[in-house]
């Protein structure tokens, strides 16, 4: 009789929770090394794109180093923006995960 039904209640609730709460949001940890690599990649990419575009437009218009210089300056700015944005988004993306309410997540495809 005293085989407490309240214990059963908590156990059922716990079973429900494990069914829902099992979220694996892998978080890319931002170690110093990783951050440096990320920035380097971003800046090299910016440099490559701006050099390519600058040289190409200079070649077409025969304006030699003018557009290369313009694009290099803009490319550096864009690269910095990308680094900041990517860092912000990565943390936002991983932080948003567990904090959100678990609505009806039926992914029945």
């Amino acid at each position: 009789m005293a085989d407490d039904p309240s214990d059963l209640e908590t156990r059922i609730a716990a079973a429900r929770d494990t069914g829902k709460g099992g979220r694996t949001t892998g978080k890319a940890q931002a170690s110093g090394y990783g951050m440096a690599v990320r920035m380097a990649v971003e800046m090299v990419a910016a440099l490559a794109v701006s050099v390519f575009l600058g040289l190409w437009i200079d070649g077409e218009l025969d304006t030699a180093p003018l557009f290369l210089v313009i694009f290099l300056v803009m490319g550096m700015a864009a690269g910095v923006i990308n680094v900041v944005r990517a860092a912000g988004m990565m943390t936002r993306g991983s932080q948003r995960g567990p904090g959100r309410s678990e609505g009806d997540r039926t992914r029945g495809d």
Partner: peptide
């Protein structure tokens, strides 16, 4: 606007470069 367009064009390069470099 040009900087934003440039930054948009840089995305695929950095995406591919990151995987390749690592």
């Amino acid at each position: 606007i040009p900087i934003e367009i440039l930054s948009y064009l840089i995305r695929p390069v950095s995406l591919g470069l990151r995987l390749f470099a690592n």
